[in-house]
Design a protein around this nucleic acid. Sequence first.
RNA 1: GGGCGCGUAGCUCAGUGGGAGAGCACUACGUUGACAUCGUAGGGGUCGCUGGUUCAAUCCCAGCCGCGCCCACCA
Length: 941
Amino acid sequence: MAIEKTFDAAEAEPRIAEMWETDGCFQAGANASKGADSYCIVIPPPNVTGSLHMGHALNNTLQDILIRWKRMQGFDVLWQPGQDHAGIATQMVVERKLAAEGSESRRDMGRAKFLEKVWAWKEESGDTIIGQLKRLGASCDWSRNRFTMDEGLSAAVRKVFVQLFKEGLIYKDKRLVNWDPHFETAISDLEVELVEVAPSKSGGKLWRFRYPLADGVTYEYREALSRDEDGNVTEWSEPETRDYLVVATTRPETMLGDSGVAVHPDDERYKDLVGKEVLLPLVNRRIPIVADDYADQTKGTGAVKMTPAHDFNDFQVGKRQNLRLVNVMTTRAAIWLKDNPDFLEGAEPEADAMALDGLDRFDARQKVIELLDARGLYDGADDNPHEVPHGDRSKVVIEPYLTDQWFVDAHTLAQPALEAVRSGETVFAPQNWEKTYFQWLDNIEPWCVSRQLWWGHQIPVWYGPDGHAFCEETEKEAQTAAKKHYNKKTKVPLTRDEDVLDTWFSSALWPFSTLGWPAQTPELQRYYKTDVLVTGFDIIFFWVARMMMMGKHFMKDAKGAPEAPFHTVYVHALVRDEQGKKMSKSLGNVIDPLELIDQFGADAVRFTLTSMAAMGRDIKLAVSRVEGYRNFGTKLWNAARFCEMNGCARDAKFDPSRVEQSVNRWIVGETARAREACDAALASYRFNDYAAALYNHVWRVFCDWYLELSKPLLQSEEDPTAKAETQATAAWALDQILLLMHPVSPFLTEELWRVTTGEATRKKPLVHGDWPTYSANEFADEDTDEEMQWVIRLIEEIRSVRSEMNAPPSAKVPLVLVGASPAVEARMQRNEAQVMRLARLESWEMKDAAPKGAVAVAVEEATACLVLADVIDVAAERKRLEKALAKAQKEAGGIEKKLSNESFLAKAPLEVVEEQRERLEAAKGDIARLGAALERLAEMG
RNA sequence: GGGCGCGUAGCUCAGUGGGAGAGCACUACGUUGACAUCGUAGGGGUCGCUGGUUCAAUCCCAGCCGCGCCCACCA
């Protein structure tokens, strides 16, 4: 079968993908050797309605490399795929879609109908990402695909929730949470991102207000003008009689919910005011002045207004100081005063204040400043740029908000998860991420897992008429529990908790829920604990840490000890644009991996990402790199064509350890070295080293040298034995390349595997090829390596000289070797056809002296003299020789200096000293030969 | 404020206690029917700065300068 002129990725990739799939090549255990160990990776589940971006492309390429590598090695491999329901993100997308279609809103249609719409959207778009992963070549066991809202995984969620509830590790609590006023739901700390706010009319400032003291109280106010090193005041300002306190705030509108003012107990300025009260402006509520360490004398005015219902710190202070919680906002962060009992109690709000009701918080902020200003209570403002929390999805300012929510006792669950990494049960690669992991888990806060959304796992809690919570996996069980609790025989009216769980709650169970848990399936027995998790560092907290917590809590090893979900967590970088910026739609710098695949083929995209996946560094992706690696694929393709044209057919009986020709012996050794390099790189997750080893071996070694050197053997009939051996060796070496390269470039290599069958047929597709195990110890030999290095060096030197002396490439020139030992002469004889062809020689001979008019180049112990033309450019040749001489002299000088240093000789390891001596000798030889050549040149005049 | 990381060729990045590397870009030249998605040759770096450890530092340590990211109470 003749190989096509070029590889048509667009045609071949879908065809090959289909072949793999219909033949079940990716199924768990496919190609497993007898009694093989398992090797399992669970995919980081992409959003079910999402589409493939560069991060996915990188993440899944790396996983696929490991999976294909292990599968070829004969492991019992499972790459478990699946998708995530992505609560907020998906609900957001569907709501947006409804709005765009002009259909009724989520609230108008109600929960059941809305969920129908989401499921419909999931059915419609859910396979998109799977198709895209397949285009990338991801060899997941697609027959085992899972979705976080599948019945099985939902059962796992319910079981985990109920068990944690019964263990007291999940509880309901009324406290401040991060509230997203856009989605009207609580979110976790992790879903909050801080955004710098520059000073403007509406934010980024510190406003000061005067709060009048109640009951006509006055005090002598003075300010610290200077302090000593310990912070003690050394100079006070003149005292001033005041009947008010000045408070500073970045959020004026929250003053409506103030229930106290805090000062530091040691603050001289306000000492006498503690226990007194101020009359809250506009609201006319009496609120206490309390002493609390939280107040910082050096910040603001030292007196800080307390709004325990709208500020996390104030909440804490309020608890300590018994301050009231006055919530003054709706779930959409509008001011809420009318019919607000907490607000109205103990207050006599002015009409102007009540007029704020219903205003958006930022409009209210302006209004409050104006109203206070009109009353002479505005005391100015300073610029105060600071970071404000925003919702990572909604991008609106997050409100600390007082609600009932469900929390997971993350602190308790974190301890075994920490221990798992501390003990080495699970290791991170690169290891420095362990520190990040420890730091977060060591300081972990309760995890708010309830969401006021509709798309997700509804919380398995039912409430009785008196509000008692029954947490059971089914309503039936809840009913049973309720009957028992209320001691009733008849049906108890129960209402289910409306909320759903944080998406990451179900993701946290992923490594075992996908394997069938809570059922004790064979897959769970076989593949848990999984081998490696491949993920980006941006979800170490969101996902990795939580999987560790849940895995350690729910899973047990054979001895009954808690078992972590992974042996290794490999953390890769983020893919950024060429300038190093995060790819984002708003910046317009997104590179679509599918477009790259269309343009260059999946293998080129995969190879590019792999070659750039050095540990601990972000990937700045340039399209030119992809093009370069597409060319690399083409190069290999053409090399295969060359082999085919020269009758390099596979020979099943070929024994690489028995070849005789130098070039063949050499490539066999080089191949073994490449195999070792690939394995070493992959075993240590050094993906870029793997790619570099392949690139170098295929292009620089196999194509540039081996194929070139083999041409005289292949294209001559002089020595049929040597020719046959070379044909077999080339075919073997190419096969090895296909095997070694398959994990990163599966399509191209599978296609070449198919079309280079030769006379023997392939027993299996390449995806199930047998990964080689030979070593350089077996195949490489020192003499051959030295010989080929010499040959290559000689050819390079001659080419270099020719080029520098402007010898026309078409001209064949005679070579004279001077000063060569018999061993070197034998080398030359063994490789004369190769040297003559690649160096474009007309003839070669040994002589004792250099011929007149020849240019000389030192090649180890010999001098290669090229008789270039009748007349050579003496000046140019002198320049060239002098340059080479200077280089050699510089090197010799450096080494001599080192070798004359006695401490070097005394303290450096012997082999280092020996190496330096050898290098000096070589340099001295070069100097002598180049010097001689210069002398001859001088004789010529 | 705490933590992590990065500064090596024009660009993007590997790398190592003892001879500075790759890809791309650039320059010159194109001979041999695998390949112009190519070949051959070439130019280009005081490895951020300053000290220290060492026989030896681009590499280890400290400090500094510059840049990035993560975490952390919005007075």
